[in-house]
Structures are given as C-alpha cells and as structure tokens.
Design a binder for these strands. Structure first.
Lengths: 330, 330
DNA sequence: TTGTACGCGTTATCAT
DNA sequence: ATGATAACGCGTACAA
C-alpha cells in the first residue's frame, strides 16, 4: 500500500505538501506541484479513505436503508439514489433491514462511526424517538416515510390521495363492495395510516360502510395476493373489487382469480399500487396508482447531498404527485 | 463521539483493557471485564471502524458489483449475499456499474483502499486482464460470470446446459422455427457465449440450421421484448417459438403477442430464463429455466468470507444446476 | 493481569 | 510557499 509519505519521498517534498496537492490548496509552486503529481501517477497512489475519515470529515459514502431490496419499489429507489450519488463522487451503501428493528439501529450506527456521511431511510422500523438521536451525527433524509413532528427533510407521495383516488375510481366504476389490502395494519396511527384514511374517506363519501371482513392486513407479496384470493373465494358475501396495495399483490390476486374462473374486471376488478413494470405485463393490464419512484429517489439524493455540503439546510417536506393509471383491470 | 478512552475513564481502567474486552482477550479479571462492559453499555459505545481498519486488518465490508440493481436477477443475488454477510458481521456495499467500464474500475479501487475487504462481481465489463491486478489487494469472487483462465473462485450455473434444455424442450414440442434473444452478442467469445453455444447445439442436433434473422442481440427489458415482437410480426417467415433470454423479455413478448391476437402457446411458444416471480403471474404461466439465484448468492458470500478468514483458499469453480420449469407458455 | 507507548495514513495548526 | 508536528481512535509489543 503506497502512502502519502512514499509520494513525498519520491517527489522530494514533505508529506504536507503532498496533502496540499491532493486537496487543491491554492498556494503551491507549480514546480513542486508537478513533481508531486508525477510521483502520485508513477506510484499509482490513492488516498486511504479510512485515514481521511478518521482524521477529518471526509464525505464519500451515503447509506440507503431499505426493508427489502428485492421489492422492485425499493430497488428502483436505490437505483435513482445511487445514480445521483455517483455523479457527485459518493458511494452508496445498501442497508437491508428485513424489517428488523435491531438491524436498522445497527445501520444507523454507520452515521456515528462516520462510515456513512448521511443516510436516506426509505422505511422506518423503530419509533422515531429511537432514531432521532442519530441526527446529531449526520443528516438523515426520509424518503417514502412520514413522521408527524419532523425535524428532518421528507420526500413522499400523498398516500392518502393515492388511495383515495384509487378507491374512488372503483366506486365510479359502480363498485360498492371493495376489499382492501394493506402492508401494515388497519389502525389510525401505524404504518399505512394515510392509505387507510384514504380508503375510509372514499367509502364514506359514497355512503358505503366499511366491512371489516374485507380488510386484509400485512400483505406484501404475490403469494400473499394468491392467498387473499382464496380467502375471498370462501366468503359467502364476496367483494366485487379489490384495492390491492401493491402491484405484486394485485398480480397474485389476478392469477388466482383467473385460475378460479373469474373474469377481470367483470367478476372482479383489481387495482394495484406503484405502477411497476409488472403492471403493464399482466393480463388484463393492471390499473394502478403510479408513484414517481425515480423522482423520489433523485430528490432524496439531491437533498442529502445539499445537506452534506451546506449543513444549514432546514427540514422541508416535498410531496410528489401520484397518478391514476387506468388499464383494463377495472 | 464516544471513544475507547471515554469507556476506560468511566470504567476506571486503561484503554488497553477496554480494547482487550472488545476483542475477547482471554486473560482479564471478571471484575474489570464487567466494569468495562457496563461502561460500554452506559455510553452506547461502538468501535470506530475507520480507526480499526487503519490500525490493523479489520474486515467488515464486502462489495457486490452488479450491472443494474433493478434487474430482479441481481437484486435477488444481492439479497442473498447481504444476508450471509450480515450474519457474519459484514456490511454490504452495492456497486452498480450500469455497464460502465470506468465505473467498474472505480469500484475495484475500493479493494485497494481497504474500503472493502473483498468483492463479489456478478458481471464483468472490462477485460479480465484489467481486473486481475486487483486480486493483489483482496479476494475477488466471480458469481454468475465465467472466465477461461480463472485464478479466482467462480460460482455459476451452466448457461450452456440451461439454454440447451430450453431450446430442446421447444424442439420436442414440435417447433423448428425458434427465435433467440440474448443480452450480449451472438459471438463465439463475448458475453453469453455459452448460451449461444447451447442454442446452436440444440438446433444442430435436430438438424435445424440457424436463421440469422431470428437472432436478436442486446435485449434485456420488457420494452425490448415488446419491440422484438414487433420485429417478429413484420417478418414474412415468422418463428413459431422464442427463447427469450430472460423472464422480463418473455413478459414483453407475451404481452405484445397477445395484443397482436396471437394465442400462446398455439401461435407462438415462449420460454423465459431465471424463473423470477413474474414468470408465475404471467398468463399463460411462463415456461422458463430456473436459476438457483439464492443459492448462488449464498455460496458466493460464503466463499468470500472463507477467503477473508483463511487467505489460503484456492480458486475453485462451483457449478449449480439449472432446472426446466414447464408451465403453459410452451 | 494490567498499563504505557507507539504507529496506522491523513489533515490542521503553527511556525518559518 | 513550505515544513514539522500533533491529533483522529484503535490495537499491540513491550514493560511491569
């Protein structure tokens, strides 16, 4: 491993001068500067980031916390963030929590130990009170998560609005028996609370009461969708439409429904969420709520970089619009 | 930032003792050990990895190089690797090359600067001659890539075999006009060369000549699949089956084919590659070649960790079996 | 069993 | 404009 000292020796200067060249200090004689640059080239020297980090505040790494990278929503988010970061010379550390609280905290420690200069959290497992203290060690940006009393920037889409227009669309298609899948619980304060509100509001406006039997909680995957369809088939009073909560769940639903002989959307209408690639390729094409994933990631990355460069940035909430994409499943 | 010294002060011992507790040295009096542990707990102390790295050879980070994380094949691979790593206390750095040679090299530099202790490459953009020198700085494992003269471990599936059985399956279904999509080029040495060989071998055995018009190169996405279908529709001599090269391409193909009024598999048979979740949810269900992605990732992770712990590990090639999954599209 | 002192590679401070 | 030196947090040879 060649160090700054090797370069200094070869160039015949002190290591201080070498350091200055590396960091583009203004007042260096062109001669020495050239000698140093040549020596660096010749030795194939690269500064040791561990040493730089230990010494001062070198910023080269951002961390992105996601629950599951195999969820396309998050892989697209990471993709967008990584691109923004790379363009500014940052490396991206991917942190998968698998929805494990402890794992999440262990990743937050990256901030304290200066392994990461800033963190983008795309999901939150612990209470905010657990996480908030870490903001002392570096900027944290929330992307796709929503906290009531935010002292950090947040980039989000209006989940309430997205769900509302989705359910309303079903109602306008004539449906009154609308099932609802959520990745969280159907509570007023927990995960997906905004979506829950949107669902209830849309029903309420149409004078439709909520049927608890048609509320399916903790659903995420294609497999979950298939399983939900089984449940629905066994009901004596079956819904005529399903708000699936994600395109994956919708895919599972659709698959099981067709296998059971149901015609879509005639016997059962299905609406997804996200507008992932899969939505387009399903048959019939999936009506869904498009989330501007790439824009969210880009924005989150840009905000974090801005905070790293000018720590004075105040918290702000950026709300990006959702869009109803009508295809053939409704 | 709380350091080892803070802990030492609070526990009333020297920092050496604290260090020894952290690193599980054998000969420490239980009293002091407890005091130290308590102090660490109380202060919420976490060792600074930059310092540890700088000091000695601490291994805590592995890097995974992928072309595109939004490709489910790679996100599942990363997922598996991350889990193996985390279980052994390693962090996973995701490096997305976007198929950019320079970017790939910049990520390899992580190894030289000890930012990463080892690297798993799931794709290779540069010539191996460019990459090989970096093995000097730390272990490199190839996962899903194949080099002829390997001096590093490789985990792979037999792409030749996978393609061969896929195409043979189509032939057994009575097809003789079989189109072929590849993510690389249709050359003897480049990317996907093994697949190309498998395709040619299967045709050859059946006495079917290769029709260059039906060879589609550089295809990856659902959009590519749709585009390919357009091309096929415009041909006066149309193939009756397509080897798609990936489940995404197959999805695009299927979608466009159905839209054009073709029945699958009667008018056009389609076979994918990977057996991703999407394969199951397509209508009709997609016949495909299953790659043991999770097992590949797990194995790659384990090998890399083994090399980090016992640098004496010799290079070896692990070949995992592929499997033909027959659904309704063929 | 425990502690002192040095060095890992870099940058900031203070001289010159 | 340039250089000597301390300091970042940690691990370890050496001493006690």
């Amino acid at each position: 491993m060649t160090t700054i000292i090797d370069v200094a020796r070869l160039a015949g200067v002190s290591k201080t001068t070498v350091s200055r060249v590396i960091n583009n200090y203004p007042h260096i004689s062109p001669d020495k500067k050239n000698q140093v640059l040549q020596a660096m080239e010749q030795l194939g020297f690269t500064p040791n980031p561990s040493a730089r980090r230990l010494r001062g505040q070198l910023a080269t790494t951002i961390a992105v916390v996601v629950p599951k990278i195999v969820n396309p929503f998050f892989s697209y988010l990471v993709d967008a963030i990584e691109q923004v970061g790379y363009r500014s010379g940052y490396q991206t550390l991917i942190c998968q929590t698998n929805e494990d609280k402890e794992k999440e905290l262990s990743y937050l420690n990256l901030l304290r130990t200066k392994q990461a200069d800033g963190i983008i959290m795309t999901s939150i497992e612990n209470d905010w009170a657990q996480i908030e203290p870490y903001t002392e060690f570096g900027p944290i940006v929330l992307c796709n998560e929503y906290i009531n009393k935010p002292d950090v920037p947040m980039i989000r889409v209006d989940q309430y609005q997205g769900t509302y227009i989705g359910v309303k669309h079903l109602i306008e298609r004539g449906h009154r028996k609308i099932a609802y899948c959520t990745g969280g619980l159907f509570t007023e304060f927990g995960k997906d609370k905004d979506r829950n509100r949107g669902y209830q509001k849309a029903l309420e406006e149409a004078g439709i009461p909520v049927n608890p039997a048609w509320i399916l909680v903790d659903k995420h995957t294609i497999g979950d969708g298939k399983q939900v369809m089984q449940l629905l088939m066994e009901m004596k009073d079956r819904p005529t439409a399903v708000f699936a909560g994600s395109d994956e769940i919708a895919g599972g639903l659709m698959m099981a429904a067709k296998r059971a002989g149901l015609r879509i959307p005639d016997d059962l209408a299905i609406i997804g969420f996200d507008d992932q690639p899969i939505a387009e390729v399903l048959d019939p094409g999936l009506t869904t709520i498009r989330q501007p994933i790439a824009r969210m990631g880009k924005k989150a990355g840009e905000i974090l970089l801005a905070m790293l460069n000018e720590p004075s940035q105040g918290p702000a909430v950026y709300e990006l619009p959702v869009e109803l994409i009508i295809r053939e499943s409704t």
